[in-house]
């Protein structure tokens, strides 16, 4: 069917998308790499000079970088653990026949559609505020001292907020996967006397492995660049207690006007994300073969 003529037409149809994405990838990234080798401060325009790897050296040796790196990993890891474990449990529950399943699904999926600035501010004020928040009211009702979540456990609080936004995503994907599980095989195992636990370990878990991998990898891509939630709740503080890598780069380049240092940080973030991306691409690439 594919003649020479139609192949040329096909190339013409693909090219706008390819050219645009190519430019989008190469131009700003090239500029970031270039800036990362310059001493370049927005407050001193026209004073740019070549510094080699100095920016990388200063970025990596500052204390804030290591804090931010650890915070980034804790944030990604914490949210992943909560959403995968919670997602599997929820998916198993929602897969059981029950009344009003449709409505429950609608309630569970809802947080995913809430924009990050809204979810962060709602949790910060209406729930975690130590004076008027819901948790403070509950603590007072039991005669306890209200806990100031965002000052005393800023990173944990942000993990909770972000996990709330992503739990629906994990649940929905795992539920979709569960529903494609072979019912007859399950029933056969049950007839043969396999316990619930054994059926879970030997049938359900292997069936879900692929979907869990997909959830982990896709969420990692988004979680590595969490930004809005931190900006509107803690501004990365107190100190660097809740600063992650994207926030550190933002602070360095647009709050401290250090374009060179910020660019070096940006490149480090790109490298980190690419390590995760390589795994994701392999997964999806495999899927494309079938």
């Amino acid at each position: 069917m594919a003649t020479e003529h139609s192949r040329t037409a096909a190339r013409l149809m693909v090219s706008p998308a390819v050219i645009l994405l190519f430019l989008w990838m190469i131009v700003p990234l090239g500029m970031t790499i270039y800036f990362s080798f310059l001493r370049y401060n927005l407050l001193m325009p026209g004073m740019e000079s070549w510094t080699g790897f100095d920016n990388y050296y200063y970025f990596i040796t500052q204390h804030a970088f290591w804090d931010a790196l650890i915070n980034t990993l804790l944030l990604v890891g914490g949210v992943l653990v909560i959403t995968v474990v919670g997602g599997v449990a929820l998916a198993l529950l929602l897969d059981q026949p029950s009344k009003g399943q449709g409505i429950v699904r609608v309630m569970v999926i809802a947080p995913f559609f809430v924009m990050p600035t809204v979810s962060a501010l709602v949790w910060k004020n209406m729930f975690m505020n130590p004076v008027n928040g819901m948790f403070a009211h509950i603590a007072k009702a039991f005669g306890l001292q209200p806990f100031d979540f965002l000052s005393h456990a800023p990173l944990a609080s942000i993990i909770l907020i972000v996990a709330w936004s992503w739990l629906p995503f994990a649940t929905l994907i795992l539920l979709t996967a569960l529903q494609s599980l072979d019912r007859e095989q399950m029933e056969a195992a049950e007839m043969d006397g396999a316990s619930w636990l054994n059926r879970f370990i030997y049938l359900t878990v292997p069936h879900l492995t692929r979907s869990i991998t997909v959830v982990v990898l896709i969420q990692s891509i988004f979680l590595l660049s969490v930004f809005a939630e931190i900006l509107v709740t803690t501004n990365g503080g107190p100190g660097t207690a809740s600063t992650n890598l994207p926030y550190l780069v933002y602070a360095q380049s647009l709050l401290n006007y250090d374009v060179g240092g910020g660019s070096a940080g940006g490149i480090i973030a790109v490298i980190l994300a690419n390590i995760v991306a390589i795994f994701l691409m392999r997964m999806i690439g495999k899927n494309l073969e079938t």
Binding site: L21, P28, F35, I221, F227, L245, P246, G262, A273, M281
Partner: peptide, 25 residues
């Protein structure tokens, strides 16, 4: 297939990596 994978790979670039040049442009 390679083209599709490459398109996807552009999505993996964290926004913060190109924040500075985008802002300046």
């Amino acid at each position: 297939k390679d083209l599709l994978m490459w398109m996807l790979s552009t999505k993996m670039m964290p926004a913060v990596g190109v924040l500075v040049p985008m802002y300046l442009m």
